[in-house]
């Protein structure tokens, strides 16, 4: 939206946009009311009670307790409404629906790399279908970044060493901005791209065009062989490492007596810092892959492992890795940050 050619309001291209904008206009109205009330009263008082002669002093008024309470309580109530409304929109923003289509994003100085499960890989461009919830799992190859879709009203930081996620449902086909909003060095302003929202049929056509290396899980399967994971992680359970068949979403017992739910965060940790959590009954033999595997290959491997658990098609992944009990303080990152 624009006035005299000056844009004043961003496109609304996701199902969130209307919710967030409604909240925005509510707060704007409240703020405009209070700002105007204060402005009008101070200007009116300034004129009405202008000093008329030298030596004049103001009326002797100490204060007024009921008035003080009134203007403490009313803003408190209004603030609580804002809080509640904002929290409910936020909660919705943070809960991807189970059926969401999954895409991986990796932030790297200074580009965004996107990987579709079907195998397509894109840089600074993201093709998605309209009318379908989409969940993006985000990681970083080097420093902090933040994946921002202004027309969808959502963003999430990319944090080295862990997965974060965001979701949205685009509802208007078109091309919109992607920005990096966490300062990341020299070419931060160049870390921008476009998200291209297609009609579902167009999206299917687009999918047919690429995917030369097979799906993401197939690429992961190849890595699973190349990195010799397959020599220990036998499907039979007889190998030196635990079988990875049907484990995603299950709870496994660990050597130290605790247990862990197998999700993307745990798989990531087990590859990069393999000694951190040893499954009960196994020896700590696995070498660390810290610094030996890129973020992009890591997600391919994880997708492969997930494909070995067909029943658990959508384990709730990054949400759990975001809780402080796991993930946040765990050593799970690739080494090799830029020096």
């Amino acid at each position: 939206m624009s006035i005299f050619g000056i844009p004043i309001f961003p496109d609304q291209a996701s199902t969130f946009a209307k919710d967030v904008d409604a909240l925005y206009f509510f707060i704007l109205a409240v703020c405009a009311f209070f700002a105007l009330a204060v402005a009008v009263s101070v200007i009116y008082f300034g004129i009405r009670y202008h000093k008329t002669h030298d030596g004049e002093i103001g009326a002797r008024i100490e204060g007024n307790l009921p008035l003080e309470l009134l203007w403490s309580v009313i803003p408190t109530v209004i603030a609580m409404v804002m809080f509640g409304w904002g929290a409910s929109v936020f909660y919705h923003l943070r809960r991807p629906p189970d059926e969401a289509m999954h895409i991986y994003a990796v932030g790297k100085q200074w580009m965004w790399k996107f990987q579709h499960l079907e195998g397509q890989r894109e840089i600074n461009e993201l093709h998605i279908p309209a009318g379908r919830p989409i969940k993006i799992t985000i990681s970083s190859e080097d420093v902090l970044h933040s994946l921002y879709f202004p027309s969808f009203r959502t963003k999430m930081d990319a944090i080295p060493g862990r997965y974060t996620e965001l979701w949205f449902e685009a509802n208007t086909p078109g091309t919109y901005h992607i920005f990096c909003t966490e300062y990341c060095g020299t070419n931060h302003a160049g870390m921008i791209g476009s998200v291209i929202v297609l009609e579902p049929s167009q999206y299917q056509a687009w999918l047919q065009g690429g995917g030369l290396e097979g799906t993401l899980a197939q690429r992961g399967a190849k890595l699973f062989n190349d990195q010799a994971c397959v020599t220990c992680h036998l499907d039979t359970g007889q190998g030196r490492g635990p079988s990875l068949k049907d484990i995603v979403g299950t709870t496994v017992a660990l050597q130290d007596g605790s247990s862990v739910v197998v999700d993307e965060g745990y798989l990531r940790e087990s590859i990069l810092n393999s000694q951190a959590k040893i499954v009960k009954g196994f020896q700590p033999l696995m070498p660390t892959f810290q610094g030996l595997i890129s973020e992009e290959n890591l997600v391919a491997l994880i997708e492969h492992v997930k494909s070995m658990s067909p029943k658990a098609t959508t384990a709730a992944p990054a949400e759990t890795s975001r809780t402080p009990s796991r993930g946040a303080l765990q050593p799970t990152a690739p080494a090799g940050e830029k020096k």
Binding site: L23, A35, A79, M82, G86, V89, F90, P150, T154
Partner: peptide, 25 residues
Amino acid sequence: MGLFAIGGLTGLFLATLGLDVHVHD
């Protein structure tokens, strides 16, 4: 008073979770 009022009131937008996600940074 004018500027502090605008500065303070716009802080409400940022404290509101659902809105801060959009305008943060």
